[in-house]
Computed example of a mutant assay.
Amino acid sequence: MSKEYIQAVIDLIPELTDFGIGIHKNGRWLSQQEKADEFSKSQDDLLKSADAFNKAVEWLSQVKQIKNINSKRSSYGLKDLAEKKIGYITNGVFIAAAVHSGFKYKIDESSPNALFNMSEKSLKEIEKA
Rank of each mutant, 00 (worst) to 15 (best):
E34W: 04
T90K: 03
D80G: 09
K25P: 04
G87C: 09
V93Q: 01
Q33R: 08
L12C: 10
D51G: 11
A97Q: 02
I95A: 01
S110H: 12
I107Q: 01
L30T: 04
K104W: 07
D45E: 14
T17V: 05
S75R: 00
I86H: 04
I13N: 00
S110G: 12
Y105D: 03
K25Q: 15
G27T: 06
K128P: 01
A129W: 06
S2A: 13
I126P: 01
I66L: 08
K35V: 00
A8S: 15
I95Y: 00
S74R: 03
S122I: 02
Q43C: 08
Y5I: 12
Q7R: 13
S61A: 12
K104N: 10
I126R: 07
D18I: 12
G27M: 05
H100N: 15
N70S: 04
Y105G: 00
S42K: 05
F116L: 07
E109Q: 15
G102T: 06
S122R: 07
L47E: 09
K121C: 07
H24P: 01
V99H: 07
N117M: 08
G102Q: 07
E125A: 15
G20D: 01
S71L: 15
G22T: 13
Q62G: 09
K106E: 14
V9C: 05
Y105R: 04
N26C: 08
L60F: 12
A36D: 11
A129P: 00
I10Y: 07
E83C: 07
Y5P: 00
K64V: 02
S122H: 07
I69N: 00
S49L: 00
D80W: 11
K67G: 10
S31R: 08
M1S: 14
G22F: 06
S31Q: 11
D11C: 14
V9F: 03
F19G: 03
V93L: 11
D11V: 10
A56M: 06
G22M: 14
Q32F: 09
I107R: 04
N113E: 05
V93P: 01
G22I: 04
I69H: 05
Q32E: 15
S49M: 02
D37N: 10
Q62E: 13
A98V: 03
P14R: 11
S111V: 03
L30H: 10
D108Y: 08
I126H: 06
K64C: 05
S119I: 04
H100S: 15
L115A: 04
K84H: 11
I95R: 00
K64A: 14
V57T: 11
E127M: 02
L16F: 11
N68F: 10
A98P: 03
Q7F: 03
A96N: 09
I10A: 02
D44V: 12
M1C: 05
N68V: 10
E38N: 13
I126V: 11
K67L: 08
M118T: 12
Y105I: 03
D37C: 14
N54V: 12
G22Y: 03
V99F: 05
K104M: 13
N70V: 08
I6L: 07
L47T: 02
I21R: 00
I69F: 08
A8P: 00
V57R: 08
D11Y: 07
F94G: 01
A96Y: 01
S61R: 14
A97N: 02
F94K: 00
